[in-house]
Design a binder for these strands. Structure first.
Length: 691
DNA sequence: AAGATCGGTAAGGGTAATGATATTTT
DNA sequence: CAAAATATCATTACCCTTACCGATCT
C-alpha cells in the first residue's frame, strides 16, 4: 500500500519473495521469511538490532474496483528487544451497492519497516531488563521509568498469556518435564532456578508479575468458583482458629490462600446487604470527606482508604463502601446529571480521539474530568466496557455466559450506511510471531484455543516461491483453510507479488456456488478464518453447512434480533462484529501512524472535543472516514454451547474505536479512528456500535 | 559486614462478571 | 396489567500492585 511507500524515509520496505510455512507437531505454524540479505537480525544480541517489524497489511486500497474482501494483517513487535510480533488480522469486504464482489480474495502484504517508534512506545532497547527484574517497589519502577523504560501493567492480554504459555511449554520440553506444576509447586527454589526468568522472556512485565501470574494459573485451587454456605461457615471457624494464616486456611478448604483471604475480606460480620439506607449513605459521605479532608460536594475518586472508611461506617464492607461512593453517592452529592445517549456518543468519540494504542493507556480520570454525568472515572471505565460488550463478540470470554447485556438495545434502530462502497470488517484471529532463533523465521504461535486463518494440512511444509519469471510478481502457493472447514473446502492461496507478498485466500466454494456477492464476501474466508477452531465445537459434523453459508449482509439488517440470541445459551451464536469503514481509512490506518498520524483522526475529530454533538457525528459519518462496527447477523458461527469462549476469538484484537449511533433520529454510525494497531491490546478500539 | 538482590507473603486497591431489583417497553 | 426487555444497583470471584520480610548474594 501506498501508505507504506510514502513513508519511505522512515520506513524501509523489504520485499519478500518467498515465505515458507511449516507446522510443528503442536500445530503451530512457523513462518520463515528469508531475510533480504544481510541486514537481518540476529546480530548478536549485543547490539541492538534496529527495530524491525514485520508488517503484514492489506493491499486493497485503491483498487476499489476489486472490491475484493481482504484480510489485513498487522504485525507489531511486542517489545523492542524481543523479536516477537503480535499479529492482528482483520478482513474487509467491500460491499458496494452495485458492485459485485467476485470471490473472496484476501491479500496480505508483508513488509518490514523500521523506526516505528510511535507505534510502539516501548522505551528503548533494554526493555528486556524489565522482565528480568523483580522490581516490585515503587522506587525500582521509578528508576527504570527515568531511564526510559516502560512496561506493561494491568490485566494480562491474551497475547501475553499465549507467550507465557508458550515459553513454559518450551521450558518443559527442553527439560523433559511434563507438568509445569512440578516445577512450580514441587521443586525447590534451587531446582527451578531461572524458571521464572526464562519464561518471562518476551514479556514486558516485571518478573514478579510473571511469578504471580504463573502461580495463580497453575494452582487448581484458585479457580474453584463460588463459595458455598458450608464453606463460608468453615471459613469463619478457620479464620478464628488460624487468624491470617491464609495458606493454612486455604489448605483446609481446598482453596488457594489468596482466595480465602479475599473471601474473608468480603465478610464483615456487621455487614448489611442490599439497599443502603439514607443513614448509611450519610455516614459514608461524612466519613469519606473526613478521612480525605474534603468537603461535601467535592469529587473524591481516589486516595481513599476504604478499609478505614468501612471501619467507620460500620455496617458495610470496604468494597461496598467504595462501590457505593464511586458509582453513586459522590456523583449524587456533587450535583451529577443523568447519563444520556449523547453522553454515550461522546464517550465513544472521545475515546476514538484519544487515539491510544492500548486501552490501558486511557486516562479515565482525565476523561471523566468535568463531565457531570460521569459518576467517577472508575464508573466511566466500566461504562465503556458495557458498551463494548454489547457488540464485542471478540471478548470471548464473557461470551458464552453472557446472559445479560444483549446488544439488542439497538433493535429498532436503523443503521444507514453511507452509500457507495462500504467495507465490512471482520476481526480475525490474532496471533504472535515469535522468533525461532533462525533469522527470518518466526513461529506463529497459536494457543490451543486459537486457530489461524491459515492452516497447513496436507503437507507440513508449504513454500511460497516466486512464480515463473514470466509473472514475476505472482507467486502462488497453497495453504489450506482451517480444518473445520475442510469439508466445505475453502482454498487459500498465497500469492506473492514483489515487492510484496500477498497472500490470497479464495473460497472456492463460494465462488462456485455463486452466491450473491455480498454474501460471499465475508463469508468464505472470513468466516473460515475467523473462527479458528473452537475445539470441540467445530467438528465438521457439528458444523452444518449453514454455518458455512452465513450470509452477511451489510445492509440494514444489522440489527435484527441476533443480538438477543446472544443471551441464549443453548444456541450460542456469535455475534460477529463487522466493521464498516471507508477505504481510505482502511489503508491508512493500518499502517499509518508515523507521519501522518492523525489524518484519520482529524477527519472526525472536531475541535470541540469537549462536547461533540450528534450532528458532528453524523457528519463524520457522512464523510467517508467512518468506521462502523456492527454485529453481523448471527449465524456466522454457530457453536454448540460447548464452545469454549476462548476459542472463539482472540480477544483482544481489534483495532479501532468506534462509533455508534443511536436513536432513531440519527441513523448511524460511527466512526473511529483508525488506529493504531497497538501492540497489545487493541481491544480498545474495536468498537462498536450497535446498540 | 553492609547493602543489594532474591523469593516470597500479606494487605489492600481494583476489575469484570454475575445477581438482584427497579423501571420501562411491548 | 402481565410479561418481557432494560437499566440500575449490588455482590463477588478473581486480579494486580505495594509494602515488607527473611534469606542469600556480593
Amino acid at each position: 500500500m501506498s501508505t507504506v511507500e510514502e513513508d519511505s524515509d522512515t520506513v524501509t520496505v523489504e520485499t519478500v519473495n518467498s515465505v515458507t510455512l511449516t507446522q510443528d507437531p503442536e500445530g503451530n505454524l512457523i513462518l520463515h521469511c528469508p531475510q533480504n540479505e544481510a541486514d537481518e537480525i540476529d546480530s548478536e544480541d549485543s547490539t541492538e538490532p534496529p527495530h524491525k517489524r514485520l508488517c503484514l497489511s492489506s493491499e486493497d486500497d485503491q483498487s476499489i474496483d476489486d472490491s475484493a474482501p481482504c484480510i489485513s494483517v498487522v504485525a507489531l513487535p511486542l517489545s523492542e528487544n524481543d523479536q516477537s510480533f503480535e499479529v492482528t488480522m482483520t478482513a474487509t469486504t467491500e460491499v458496494a451497492d452495485d458492485e459485485i464482489t467476485e470471490g473472496t480474495v484476501t491479500q496480505i502484504q508483508i513488509l518490514q519497516n523500521e523506526q516505528l517508534d510511535e507505534i510502539s512506545p516501548l522505551g528503548n532497547e533494554e526493555v528486556s531488563a524489565v522482565s528480568q527484574a523483580w522490581f516490585t517497589t515503587k522506587e525500582d519502577k521509578d528508576s527504570l521509568t527515568n531511564k526510559g523504560h516502560k512496561w506493561k501493567q494491568g490485566m494480562w492480554s491474551k497475547e501475553e498469556i499465549d507467550i507465557l504459555m508458550n515459553n513454559i511449554e518450551r521450558y518443559l520440553k527442553a527439560r523433559g518435564i511434563k507438568d509445569a506444576t512440578e516445577i512450580i509447586f514441587e521443586m525447590s527454589k534451587d531446582e527451578r532456578k531461572d524458571f521464572y526468568r526464562t519464561i518471562a522472556w518476551g514479556l514486558n512485565r516485571p518478573l514478579f508479575a510473571v511469578y504471580r501470574r504463573v502461580l495463580r494459573m497453575y494452582d487448581d485451587r484458585n479457580h474453584v468458583g463460588k463459595y458455598t454456605p458450608e464453606e463460608i461457615e468453615k471459613l469463619k471457624e478457620l479464620r478464628i482458629k488460624h487468624g491470617n494464616d491464609w495458606a493454612t486456611i486455604g489448605a483446609a478448604l481446598g482453596r488457594s490462600a489468596s482466595s480465602v483471604k479475599d473471601r474473608c475480606r468480603l465478610m464483615k460480620d456487621t455487614c448489611n446487604t442490599g439497599k443502603w439506607t439514607e443513614e448509611e449513605e450519610k455516614r459514608l459521605a461524612e466519613v469519606v470527606h473526613e478521612l480525605t479532608s474534603t468537603e461535601p460536594g467535592d469529587i473524591v475518586t481516589q486516595g481513599v482508604s476504604w478499609a478505614a472508611v468501612a471501619e467507620r461506617v460500620g455496617t458495610r464492607s470496604e468494597k461496598q463502601c467504595r462501590s457505593k461512593w464511586l458509582n453513586y453517592l459522590n456523583w449524587k452529592q456533587s450535583g451529577g446529571t443523568e447519563w444520556t445517549k449523547e453522553d454515550e456518543i461522546n464517550l465513544i468519540l472521545r475515546i476514538a480521539e484519544l487515539d491510544v494504542a492500548d486501552e490501558n493507556d486511557i486516562n479515565w480520570d482525565l476523561l471523566a474530568e468535568g463531565w457531570s454525568s460521569v459518576r467517577s472515572p472508575q464508573w466511566l471505565r466500566s461504562k465503556w466496557w458495557t458498551i463494548k460488550r454489547q457488540i464485542a463478540n471478540h471478548k470471548d470470554v464473557s461470551f458464552p455466559a453472557s446472559t445479560d447485556s444483549p446488544a439488542a438495545t439497538v433493535d429498532s434502530e436503523t443503521i444507514t450506511l453511507n452509500s457507495g462502497t462500504l467495507q465490512t470488517f471482520e476481526i480475525l484471529p490474532s496471533f504472535h510471531l515469535q522468533p525461532t532463533g533462525t533469522p527470518g523465521t518466526y513461529l506463529l504461535q497459536t494457543s490451543s484455543s486459537q486457530g489461524l486463518p491459515l492452516t497447513l494440512t496436507a503437507s507440513p511444509t508449504v513454500t511460497l516461491t516466486a512464480a515463473a519469471p514470466a509473472s514475476p510478481e505472482q507467486i502462488i502457493v497453497h495453504a489450506l483453510s482451517p480444518e473445520h472447514l475442510l469439508n466445505t473446502s475453502d482454498n487459500v492461496t498465497l500469492q506473492c507479488h514483489t515487492p510484496r507478498v500477498i497472500i490470497q485466500t479464495v473460497a472456492t466454494e463460494d465462488l462456485a456456488s455463486s452466491i450473491s456477492q455480498t454474501e460471499l464476501t465475508v463469508d468464505g474466508d472470513i468466516q473460515s478464518s475467523d473462527f479458528p477452531e473452537p475445539p470441540d465445537a467445530l467438528e465438521a459434523d457439528t458444523f452444518p453447512d449453514e454455518i458455512h453459508q452465513p450470509k452477511m449482509t451489510v445492509e440494514p439488517s444489522f440489527n435484527d434480533g441476533h443480538v438477543s440470541k446472544f443471551s441464549d445459551q443453548n444456541s450460542t451464536e456469535l455475534m460477529n462484529s463487522v466493521m464498516v469503514r471507508t477505504e481510505e481509512i482502511l489503508d491508512t490506518d493500518l499502517k499509518q501512524e508515523e507521519e501522518s498520524p492523525s489524518h484519520l483522526a482529524s477527519a472526525y475529530v472536531t475541535e470541540d472535543l469537549e462536547s461533540p454533538t450528534i450532528e458532528q457525528v453524523d457528519q463524520t459519518t457522512i464523510d467517508d472516514e467512518t468506521i462502523l462496527i456492527v454485529p453481523s447477523p448471527h449465524g456466522f458461527i454457530q457453536a454448540s454451547d460447548a464452545i469454549d469462549t476462548e476459542c472463539v476469538l482472540p480477544l483482544t484484537t481489534l483495532t479501532d474505536p468506534i462509533l455508534h449511533h443511536h436513536q432513531e433520529e440519527s441513523n448511524i454510525i460511527g466512526s473511529s479512528l483508525g488506529s493504531p494497531v497497538s501492540e497489545d491490546s487493541k481491544d480498545v478500539e474495536d468498537l462498536v456500535n450497535c446498540h
